[in-house]
């Protein structure tokens, strides 16, 4: 049996405030056990991007929120094998070459397709190429296994996705991450 202080003995405003804090804490913990939520945590960002979820507005659980792109970018900068924040594109007509960390990224334009070619350094073989523009546009390209020392992936020209990719690649405001 315990006798608590009576309401006449304490500063009730203070007691209410402390009680509110404690209830805030406990209910948060209880609720966290119940939720299996689609909410993105910082750890889910990479997965969500790799799943190919589009960038999107708030309230849609199946998108990568625009507001998270910048955060994702700093994360990639830490975790990538190579990245280039500022474009140092050396363009010759349609083709271009870009140094991304230790990697050299070449874009070769053919009649009906464009090809991205990456030469892996050492023995590390990257699996993804991520392009993020300052304006929030983003594309993730999954890289195949290297053939003859080069990872090459082709896109048919004239298609909307390919055009977007080309535009991103040619824009100096696009950061490129290889990871």
């Amino acid at each position: 049996m315990v006798t608590l202080p009576k309401d006449t003995e304490v500063n009730m405003d203070l007691a209410i405030e402390r009680f509110g804090d404690a209830e805030a804490r406990d209910s948060l913990v209880r609720d966290s056990r119940a939720s299996n939520t689609a909410t993105l945590s910082i750890h889910d960002l990479k997965r969500a991007v790799l799943e190919g979820r589009p960038l999107g507005a708030l309230g849609d659980s199946n998108v990568v929120p625009f507001r998270a792109v910048q955060l994702y970018r700093t994360m990639l900068a830490r975790q990538s094998l190579g990245y280039s924040q500022m474009a140092r594109a050396a363009r010759t007509t349609e083709d271009m070459r870009r140094q991304v960390g230790d990697f050299e990224l070449n874009v070769v334009t053919d009649d009906d397709a464009i090809f991205l070619m990456i030469e892996p350094v050492n023995t590390v073989v990257p699996t993804t190429l991520t392009l993020i523009n300052d304006d929030g546009r983003m594309q993730v390209v999954k890289l195949p296994e290297p053939v003859g020392g080069v990872q090459q992936v082709g896109f048919p020209t004239g298609e909307a996705d390919t055009n977007d990719l080309l535009e991103l690649l040619q824009d100096p405001a696009t950061s490129i991450f290889i990871g």
Partner: peptide
Amino acid sequence: RGEFAALFDDAAYSDAFRKSVADALVR
């Protein structure tokens, strides 16, 4: 609530740890 819960999706955390985080956050 969803955002707080998502914080603990990356590994197994005990209630005691969740409580420490919630405590730091609200108290």
